[in-house]
């Protein structure tokens, strides 16, 4: 059963196409991830879902979230959803408890329910000891978890997160991923944007890779890997070794991608890449499994766009 349906949605800012003719569906209780470089249109697409960005007037598409159109029923959608914006916009003047308490007013929660829920959310996000702490005293990871707690105040059926773990250390990232998995298990639908391939791989059931406002590919992370890239990669980054390889004939079924700085050789059979590696006379190389990042770079290109 899908809870979000987006069909042929476009969004233009003056003459920039932020989102182009996008289609996707999100099933209830799954985690759906938008993956794309900065400026790909991920945030804009998310904002259109809860009515803080408006789709183009002349676009014939539709957006349906829990049966509501954000252009008409933004309040219903917002009531059923929790949002973690890209920036931690907490009130610095207030402490942790007060930040959550103020926000609970937007949902008109009775005060007994508010207190109970704040306590259980702080426990869930491992912030119980910080209940009286000022925002300035919190680390970046704690602030992020507090913003997530805030988004969960009304027990949302849909949790929207814009780059939930950008700039956080690995421990915090793993804790956040673990919490998101738990929420999904409880039936919460999760929608997130990220440019961490690992994040997408770890928690998303479906990934939609976007570039320049348009969908490049969509599918489960494993399926995307299987369909779009060879199994193994050999990376060579120093110039001398690259030179060495340039003179060498590659075995069959090895695909070379030589770009500035790094040469990458892709193949489904690891033995053929080992064969290449053996010709490197002990020079440094890196042989690994292909990952979503390889798919991503193949799909969106290695060069920077003007917004990066």
């Amino acid at each position: 059963m899908s809870v979000i349906t987006v069909k042929n949605i476009s969004k233009t800012f003056r003459n920039v196409h932020a989102v182009r003719d996008l289609d996707f569906e999100v099933e209830q209780g799954t985690c759906f991830g938008f993956l794309g470089p900065n400026g790909a249109g991920k945030t804009t697409m998310m904002k259109m879902l809860y009515g803080v960005a408006a789709r183009d007037k002349d676009c014939r598409g539709k957006i349906d979230v829990f049966g509501y159109d954000p252009a008409r029923d933004e309040l219903a959608i917002k009531y059923l959803s929790g949002v973690v914006p890209q920036e931690n916009n907490l009130d610095d003047e207030l402490d942790v408890f007060q930040n959550l308490m103020i926000y609970s007013k937007f949902y008109a929660l009775p005060s007994a329910v508010t207190k109970e829920r704040i306590a259980s959310l702080l426990a869930f996000l491992e912030l119980s000891e910080k209940v009286k702490a000022r925002i300035r005293e919190l680390s970046g990871g704690m602030k992020r978890r507090l913003v997530i707690a805030r988004a969960l105040l009304n027990n949302p059926r849909l949790l929207i997160l814009d780059e939930p773990t950008t700039g956080l250390d690995p421990q915090v990232r793993h804790v956040i991923w673990d919490k998101l998995r738990q929420l999904r298990k409880q039936g919460t639908t999760i929608l997130l944007t990220t440019h961490y391939m690992e994040e997408a791989f770890q928690i998303c059931d479906t990934v939609l890779i976007m570039d320049k406002g348009a969908k490049v590919m969509e599918g489960s992370p494993l399926q995307l890997l299987k369909d779009n890239i060879e199994k193994y990669v050999l990376e060579v980054s120093d110039v001398q070794t690259q030179q060495l390889l340039a003179d060498h004939r590659l075995p069959e079924a090895v695909r070379a991608d030589v770009s500035e700085g790094v040469s990458r050789f892709y193949c489904d059979e690891i033995d053929r890449l080992k064969e290449v590696a053996n010709t490197l006379e002990g020079n440094h190389y890196y042989l690994r499994q292909a990952n979503l990042e390889d798919v991503f770079l193949k799909a969106t290109g290695r060069g920077l766009n003007e917004k990066q």
Binding site: Y50, V52, E74, L75, A76, K78, Y79, S81, G82, V83, P85, E87, N89, L90, D91, D92, Y103, F106, Y107, V147, R150, A151
Partner: peptide
């Protein structure tokens, strides 16, 4: 600067 409104507008208010 503080982007306070981004947070508030995610709640059910217009």
């Amino acid at each position: 600067f503080d982007k306070v409104y981004d947070g508030m507008l995610a709640a059910p208010i217009t």
